[in-house]
């Protein structure tokens, strides 16, 4: 992998009320790659995500996307730059139909509502929600809401997709289905993915590269098989006694 990274995060930090949530974290995601961001609860994964997605700016450091500096851009500007995201606690537009949810995402790339609707229908088909597209999003089950969340983010036509624990709460079979969807997307469209994930089954199946955070710092990175055997990683998950 010699090409330049699509996403290049350099030494970003963030403190909340004096508490350092993320400290000098760097990570790079190359085009077409799927990278897993793992670590125990409170390790700073979601904070890192939020800085990349423009929810708040980092206190220090730099975020570059496709060569351009996107540090401190607003969430909507980051989206326009080509980064889509999902939320850990899914945020569907409850009162709107499933189709309208995705349509709103598709309006990022087109001003034409009819074209956006067509794009939405295609995506819903791909995510197995076609038969539910006229239901209110609030009436969906949790796995379906997760699918909708991903479909809606995909509708903005991102080049990089940030997934925040999309597998959490899914049954193993459902997880495997979702893994397959991402594998297909990655293979067919070259979609690049950075994912926070606790479900190791999904992480191991999807990730080509893993970054591990603990206490707001990057403690390891590398190939999946190699990272999960790293004593520092095991220690962070299991506590010192277990090593």
């Amino acid at each position: 992998m010699t090409d330049a990274p699509l996403l290049d995060v350099r030494l970003i930090s963030k403190s909340f009320r004096g508490l350092r949530a993320v400290s000098q974290v760097s990570l790079a995601v190359r085009p077409g790659e799927i990278v897993g961001l793992i670590g125990p609860n409170g390790a700073g994964k979601t904070t890192t995500f939020n800085m990349i997605a423009g929810v708040f700016p980092p206190d220090e450091g730099e975020i570059r996307f496709d060569g351009a500096d996107i540090t401190g851009l607003r969430a909507d500007q980051v989206c326009h730059a080509g980064i889509g995201r999902t939320f850990q606690l899914v945020k569907p537009f409850y009162g709107l139909s499933v189709e309208d949810n995705v349509l709103i995402g598709a309006l990022r790339a087109t001003r034409d509502v009819d074209a956006a609707r067509a794009a939405a229908v295609d995506l819903l088909d791909r995510f197995g929600l076609a038969d539910r597209r006229h239901q209110a999003a609030g009436a969906l089950t949790l796995p379906d809401r997760k699918r909708l969340e991903v479909a809606r983010a995909m509708a903005t036509r991102p080049r990089l997709l940030l997934l925040d624990e999309v597998m959490a709460g899914l049954r193993p079979g459902e997880t495997d289905e979702m893994v397959q969807v991402f594998q297909t997307l990655n293979r067919e469209t070259g979609l690049t993915i950075l994912m926070i994930e606790h479900v190791m089954r999904a992480v191991m199946a999807l990730s080509q590269h893993i970054v591990v955070l603990n206490y707001g710092e990057r403690i390891a990175e590398g190939e999946p098989e190699q990272v999960v055997r790293d004593p520092k990683v095991l220690e962070s998950y299991l506590g010192e006694e277990a090593v």
């Binding site: 909507d76 989206c79 009162g95």
Partner: peptide, 18 residues
């Protein structure tokens, strides 16, 4: 559609480029 998205969830709306 953008208005309704904002009404339903502002954070999600912004994440979709609004």
């Amino acid at each position: 559609y953008y208005w309704m998205a904002i009404r339903e969830d502002q954070d999600a709306a912004q994440a979709l480029g609004i």
